[in-house]
Computed example of a mutant assay.
Amino acid sequence: MEISLVTGPQERADAEKIRFRVFVDEQGVPPELELDEHDADADHFLARVDGRPVGTVRMVRRDGTGVLGRLAVLPESRGAGLGAALVRAVERHAREAGLRSVELHAQTSARGFYERLGYEAYGEEDIEVGIPHIWMRKRL
C-alpha cells in the first residue's frame, strides 16, 4: 500500500472516480453534491495497492483545524486497513502543518471506526444528503 498527496491532474481524476463510485453509485449521493467548493483548496490523498488507485481522502484547513472528509475506499479493497491508513496520513499532514486538531462529519454508521482511531463525537446527530452524520474531533 502506498499513500501520497495528490499533486497532478491524473491523480485528482483517480480520486474523484473513487469518490463517485463510493458516494454516488454506492450510497446514492446526488452527483452534483459530491464535488464542492472545498475541493479546490483541499489537500487530497490517494491510496494505491500494486499501483492501482483504491482509496482517497481530503483535508480542508479551517481556523487551525484540519477537516477530514470524503474518505472513500473501493468496496473490493475494504477490510485491509486502507481507511485507517488514510486517516493517519491526514493526521500526520495536519501535525506537519501545525494544526491543533482534526475534525470530521462522520456518517453515523462509521462512528465506531473513527472512535477506534481516537476521535470523539460532539454535538447532535444531523442529516446530510439523506444520511445521518455526527461531528467528531481528535486533538493532535
Rank of each mutant, 00 (worst) to 15 (best):
Y114G: 02
E125N: 00
I127H: 03
A80M: 14
A89H: 09
T108A: 03
I127A: 02
P132E: 11
P75Q: 13
I134N: 02
I131N: 02
Y122V: 05
L117G: 03
S77E: 12
F113D: 02
M136S: 02
W135N: 10
I131A: 03
V129D: 15
Q107R: 09
A80W: 07
A80C: 12
A85Y: 10
H133A: 05
G112K: 10
E120R: 14
A84F: 08
G98N: 13
Q107M: 07
E115A: 14
D126C: 03
R78F: 08
S77P: 01
D126T: 11
G112R: 14
E125A: 12
G118I: 10
L86F: 08
H93L: 04
I131R: 05
A85H: 06
P132I: 10
A106W: 01
A85D: 14
G81K: 08
I134M: 04
S109W: 06
E96H: 06
F113Q: 03
G123M: 09
V102S: 08
E96Q: 13
E96R: 14
P132A: 07
V102W: 08
G79I: 13
R111C: 06
A97S: 15
R92L: 13
H105T: 09
P132K: 09
I127Y: 05
E91M: 11
R111K: 15
E103W: 03
G83Q: 06
A106D: 03
R88I: 11
Y119A: 02
R111Q: 15
A121M: 05
R111E: 15
G81F: 11
A110K: 02
L117V: 08
T108P: 03
E128V: 12
D126P: 00
R92F: 05
M136H: 02
A97K: 14
R100C: 07
E115M: 06
E128C: 04
E103N: 07
E76T: 11
A97T: 11
I127P: 01
E125G: 00
A94L: 13
I134Q: 07
R100L: 13
E96A: 15
E115Q: 15
A121P: 05
E124H: 11
T108I: 12
E128G: 00
I127K: 02
A94S: 14
G118W: 07
A85T: 08
H93N: 12
